[in-house]
Design a binder for these strands. Sequence first.
DNA 1: TGCCTGATGTTCT
DNA 2: GAACATCAGGCAC
Length: 183
Amino acid sequence: MTELETRADIAARRLLGSHIERTIDGNTIKARIVETESYDQTDAASHSFNGETQRNKVMFGPAGHAYVYFTYGMHYCLNIVTGQEGEGSAVLIRAVEIIQGEQHCLRSAVGVNKANGPAKLCQALGIDKAMDGHDLNEPPLKLVLNNSLDDARITQTTRIGIRKAADAPYRFYITDSAAVSKR
DNA sequence: TGCCTGATGTTCT
DNA sequence: GAACATCAGGCAC
């Protein structure tokens, strides 16, 4: 996972087009990452901005691990830890496209609406706090890097759904994907 | 189509 | 006690 030991914004670009393999009850769901946001310790919107806490300690761990946090009382969001150990940087997975095993998803919505939001994709893939700190080299949640995506197909823009540092252009998505979240 | 609001619990100040 | 990296449904236009 050394490719993720880099700046969060660079890692966020690399993660676009990569695959997540989620195994539930022996069934594998494959999803392509189409939208990401990067966060690091210099960023006021990041959980790591105010230093390490019990909640965000995974962010300060080694790259290639999952940081899952609970928000708004009912939703989980999946991040992938990037950068060097102790750096406190991570990439939020905002949206994925299900490319295999859609029938095994734990969410009933159809088509691109299945996983076009950070909380929706966690629901669809059955990701919760049990996955916090999970090594993404191992099942039941694996990250398969794929750097074949052409830079010209990536759009960089400002993040959404946050108040702090909302002007920072740390959101990345695959321009021609239908699964990119609207808000 | 687009804005508003309720649901809900963890975390931090 | 307030903030929060959200979502879905309801309502007005």
